[in-house]
């Protein structure tokens, strides 16, 4: 059986979910037997070089770049998994959604906040090269179809591992209470 190809990305996330993936410890050796990585921060492949089977998404979408990457993942992966609170519900970054408009957020960050010191021209970053900020932080499934969701902040290594193994081997997923219990 040829190895399944996996891609991963971190959008508006903290990389904690990727850390959790690495927390599978010595099982990473087994993982390498099972899958091949394509575009991912893990192997630093920056663009898709082939069609992938599984895309692992950490983080929601807070800017146009996130949207672009996410859509690219949808195009290039057969199955997409939202991993972690941020991808599933926006998570911590989404705290900005209810409390203030994006204008207020930008003004607070770049103009009004006590720690703003050297912005005499009162500029909110506007370089063409910068991604454009979205009005709010969106969960991934509101932008593209997501096939599976792995909850947690971050999801336990065992949960990610069990899900990957199930997907790759086609067996039913092992879901003991401990791996989806959060406190």
């Amino acid at each position: 059986m040829s190895k399944k190809i996996v891609a991963t990305t971190s959008l508006a996330g903290c990389f904690g979910c990727h850390m959790s993936l690495l927390d599978i410890d010595e099982r990473i050796l087994d993982l390498i037997e099972l899958v091949e990585f394509n575009k991912s921060p893990i192997d630093d492949i920056k663009t898709f070089t082939k069609q992938c089977d599984i895309g692992i998404i950490e983080g929601g979408c807070c800017n146009s770049e996130n949207v672009h990457v996410l859509k690219d993942f949808r195009k290039n992966c057969k199955i997409l998994i939202s991993v972690g609170e941020c991808a599933i519900m926006g998570g911590l970054p989404a705290m900005r959604n209810n409390n203030a408009s994006i204008t207020e957020c930008l003004e607070e960050a770049y103009l009004n906040c006590v720690s703003v010191q050297a912005n005499e021209e009162k500029i909110i970053p506007n370089d063409e090269e910068l991604p454009m900020i979205l009005d709010k932080v969106y969960p991934c499934h509101e932008i593209v179809k997501i096939d599976y969701f792995l909850p947690g902040c971050a999801p336990r290594a065992d949960l990610i591992w069990n899900a990957l193994v199930a997907l790759v081997t086609g067996n039913e997923m092992d879901l003991p209470y401990e791996v989806i219990k959060f406190d």
């Binding site: 146009s64 408009s101 994006i102 204008t103 930008l106 003004e107 909110i124 970053p125 506007n126 063409e128 454009m132 900020i133 979205l134 009005d135 709010k136 969106y138």
Partner: peptide, 12 residues
């Protein structure tokens, strides 16, 4: 629609 407001705020 989603980028409209932030772009306006930043003047881009």
């Amino acid at each position: 629609e989603a980028v409209q407001e932030s772009c306006a705020a930043a003047g881009r």
